[in-house]
Design a protein around this nucleic acid. Structure first.
Length: 411
DNA sequence: CTTCCACGGGAACACTGGGGTG
DNA sequence: CACCCCAGTGTTCCCGTGGAAG
């Protein structure tokens, strides 16, 4: 098509005739839970072995599940949970499985509130004292004889501020007359227990199940399995799946990543009106996913963090950045656009947060006589980051701003 | 050995959005 | 209605500390 000209007539027909290479793309999304989990039978069996005591009327041990992201922890836990409830109904043994993602429900109050709500108790979003919510939940739970399995996904997100809830939950059984509770903690932080109250640690970790990362071959099996459902017959070039598997295996064997990669590759192929998904599309997809991730993260940053990041971006042209320099630039920019200036203490925290998100790298170095500082370097493409930052209307006025050129102390 | 700068832990505070009670 | 209580979040304030250049 000629540049700049577009025929409106027939545009939809044109689009509809694009070869649809997907059969059902939803099976490649992370929200989809498959019925069959390849290479996880050991973990399924281990978990089932612990939980089976529920069906014998005993309280199962608490379980702690470890494994990096995308190793199937959540899928296995949910599956075994469903199966337990189903079998329980069959035998007339009431089992309840409550799944809670602690990344969303990340405070004591909210956790207890959602537990209570699970038993149809009305608990306001905020306002009550925590122990009131606790007893509300306890009473609701104890109103019948049953075994409740509470699955706490990403428990590590919960614990960094007060593990009181965990402590209370591990001891709740002594307060209960009819019901019994057992906990399943799921975490991708292998060092998670180190920060835990020792009493909680021993109780929560009665049983431990480890999910090792998938290797490239296993990822290939998983992809093959899903690709059968997701794509039309024969639209994948043979090397596509092995390539996706290989890329994802590099990223600590993340199956979610592998599936995303395959899906995006397909979407790119589709848009390119290709009849087949080719190797080149996968490479394309790999880049796109990374860029999208960064853009998304940067875009949703709070203004203050954006400003801190911007000062790093502006400074990074001349090599190493120290906190002091960055903070000066940051201060000036705050004044220009008229927003409140935060203290340096706070800004170092923001920098650490950015570091944790993988947007920049900050390492503490001691410069001897010249004190101690954090050396910052960007770990994302500079120009695209800049562009994304300036999309924020509050930062717009700074587009023309140039930091005063630093006269180098060391020349 | 001193000296320097910022790191980073912890307490304290302000503020928000909600509750219950008189 | 006014008033005080509560959890949660973001921030400031205070301060002890690391560690190599000088």
């Amino acid at each position: 098509m000629e540049k700049g000209t577009i025929t409106i007539r027939g545009i939809f027909e044109d689009m509809l005739t694009i070869l649809n290479i997907f059969e059902n793309r939803d099976v490649l999304r992370s929200t989809y839970t498959p019925d069959y989990l390849p290479h996880r039978s050991d973990q399924v069996r281990a978990l089932a072995t612990v939980l089976v005591s529920a069906l014998r009327g005993e309280t199962p041990s608490n379980v702690l599940i470890y494994g990096k992201t995308g190793t199937g922890k959540t899928a296995v836990a949910k599956h075994v949970g469903q199966e337990l409830v189903r079998t329980g109904e069959l035998y007339g043994i009431p089992c309840v499985v409550i799944y809670i993602n602690c990344e969303v429900v990340d405070t004591q109050y909210r956790l207890l509130a959602s537990l209570a709500r699970h038993f149809d108790r009305e608990v306001p979003m905020t306002g009550w004292p925590t122990d009131q919510v606790y007893s509300e939940f306890k009473n609701a739970l104890d109103s019948d004889k049953r075994i409740a399995i509470i699955m706490l996904d990403e428990v590590d997100k919960l614990t960094y501020k007060g593990d009181d809830v965990l402590y209370n939950l591990t001891r709740i059984n002594s307060d209960l007359k009819k019901a019994k509770v057992s906990l399943i903690g799921i975490t991708n932080d292998l060092k998670f227990t180190e920060f835990l109250d020792p009493r909680v640690r021993s109780s929560l970790g009665e049983e431990e199940i480890i999910f090792p990362p998938y290797d490239a071959n296993q990822l290939r099996d998983i992809l093959q399995e899903r690709a059968k459902m997701a794509f039309k017959e024969g639209v994948l070039e043979e090397t596509v799946i092995p390539l996706c598997a290989a890329y994802a295996a590099q990223e600590h064997g993340d199956a979610r990543r592998a599936l995303d990669l395959l899906r995006v590759s397909g979407e790119i192929a589709e848009r390119a009106k290709s009849a087949k998904v080719l190797e080149a599309h996968v490479k394309h997809a790999q880049e796109k996913i990374e860029i999208d991730r960064i853009v998304e993260v940067v875009k949703t940053l709070p203004t203050q963090s954006k400003l801190v990041l911007l000062s790093a971006v502006l400074l990074c042209y001349d090599g190493n950045i120290t906190t002091g320099e960055a903070y000066n630039i940051y201060k000036q920019m705050c004044r220009i656009i008229g927003i409140e200036v935060l203290t340096q203490r706070r800004v170092t925290d923001l920098i650490s947060e950015l570091d944790m998100m993988g947007i920049l790298n900050a390492t503490v170095v001691s410069k001897g006589r010249y004190g101690r500082t954090k050396e910052i370097s960007l770990s994302v493409p500079i120009d695209s980051t800049r562009k994304v930052l300036f999309e924020d209307y509050r930062l717009k006025p700074l587009e023309e701003y140039r930091p005063p050129s630093q006269t180098k102390l060391y020349a």
